[in-house]
C-alpha cells in the first residue's frame, strides 16, 4: 500500500495533474514563506495604508489594493496559511475521530456499533454545511470556531467509511484466526484492520481537502469565519462584494485563490484515487 505512495510520479502523469501539483506546491510555499516573499508584508498582515485605497491592478500593485489601501497580492499570499491550515486541521481531526469511532463500531459490532452509527446518522441528517453554519453561529464567529464547526459535521463521513471497511476486514479468515489464537484486539485493530483501511482513508482525505477549503471560504464569506483584519480569502471576497462593479479586482482575485486551491486539490484527489484504485480509473 505504502509502496504505491513512494513513487510520486502519478502527481505529474498528465498536463492537468502537473498543473494542479504546481499550483499546490506554490500555495504550500506561500503558506510557509509568505511573510518573506510578499511584496508588502506589513499590509499583508493588516496594516492600513489609506492613501493608496482602490488602486487598480498595475505595475506597483500587481493585483491592485483594497479599501484600506493594502496590497491585494500580499493579502492573498498571507491568506494561504489559514486556508491550508483549516483544510489540514479539519480533515485531520475529522479523520482521526471518525477512524477511531469507525474502527470501534466495525470491529466490536453490537450495541456500541448501533450507538455510534445512530449518532453519526443524526449528524448526517442535515444538508451539507448547514450543521456547520448553525454550530458556528452559536459558537460565535471566528477561524477556530469555524474549524470546530466543520469538524462537527465532517467526522461522521469518516466513521461510516471506516466502519464498513473494518467490518469487511474483520470477517476475513486471517483476522478471525488471529482473534481465535488470542491476539489482543488492540493488536488486531492496529496490525490488520487499520492497515487495510488506509487506502480508502487516504483517497477520502485527498478528496475532502478541497471541499473543506470551499466550506471554510463559504463560512467566512457570510461573516461567520475569520474576522477582520485577518487575511482570509473568503472574508476578502465578502469585503469586495459591494464594490464588484467598480473595484472588481478585490473579490475577483481573492475568490480566484479559493478556486485555484480547491481545483488543485480536487484534480490531485482524482489522480490519487485513480492511482490507488485502478479499477475505477478513467478509461
Amino acid at each position: 500500500m505504502m509502496k504505491r505512495l513512494r513513487s510520486l510520479k502519478f502527481l505529474f502523469k498528465d498536463k492537468l495533474t502537473s498543473m494542479a501539483s504546481a499550483i499546490l506546491i506554490l500555495f504550500i510555499f506561500l503558506a510557509i514563506f509568505g511573510p518573506w516573499v510578499a511584496p508588502f508584508p506589513k499590509e499583508g498582515k493588516g496594516t492600513a495604508n489609506v492613501d493608496n485605497s482602490y488602486i487598480g491592478p498595475g505595475f506597483k500593485h500587481l493585483l491592485g489594493t483594497d479599501e484600506l489601501g493594502r496590497d491585494l497580492l500580499s493579502r492573498i499570499i498571507f491568506g494561504a496559511r489559514p486556508a491550508l491550515f483549516i483544510a489540514l486541521a479539519v480533515v485531520g481531526f475529522a479523520a482521526v475521530i471518525g477512524t477511531l469511532l469507525g474502527l470501534i463500531a466495525g470491529y466490536r459490532g453490537g450495541w456500541i456499533d448501533s450507538l455510534i452509527m445512530r449518532v453519526s446518522e443524526l449528524f448526517l441528517s442535515f444538508p451539507p454545511l448547514l450543521l456547520s453554519l448553525v454550530a458556528v453561529t452559536f459558537l460565535g464567529p471566528g477561524l477556530i470556531n469555524a474549524l470546530i464547526a466543520l469538524i462537527i459535521s465532517w467526522w461522521p463521513w469518516y466513521a461510516r467509511l471506516i466502519r464498513v471497511e473494518a467490518s469487511i476486514v474483520k470477517s476475513r479468515p486471517y483476522v478471525e484466526i488471529s482473534a481465535a489464537m488470542g491476539v489482543p484486539d488492540r493488536i488486531i485493530i492496529l496490525r490488520h484492520i487499520l492497515r487495510n483501511v488506509t487506502t480508502p482513508l487516504i483517497v477520502q482525505i485527498a478528496a475532502d481537502l478541497g471541499t473543506v477549503i470551499l466550506a471554510a471560504g463559504s463560512l467566512a464569506f457570510i461573516g461567520l469565519g475569520a474576522q477582520p483584519p485577518a487575511a482570509d480569502w473568503g472574508l476578502m471576497v465578502a469585503q469586495g462584494r459591494n464594490l464588484i462593479f467598480d473595484q472588481w479586482w478585490i473579490s475577483t482575485f481573492s475568490g480566484m485563490a479559493i478556486f485555484l486551491a480547491v481545483l488543485a486539490f480536487n484534480i490531485l484527489g482524482d489522480a490519487l484515487r485513480d492511482h490507488f484504485d485502478p479499477r475505477i480509473a478513467r478509461q
Binding site: 470551499l214 463559504s218 464569506f221 473568503g234 475577483t252 478556486f259 480536487n266
Partner: peptide
Amino acid sequence: SMPAFWLGL
C-alpha cells in the same frame, strides 16, 4: 471547485 458566491459575483 468554484465557490458559488464567487461565481455569482
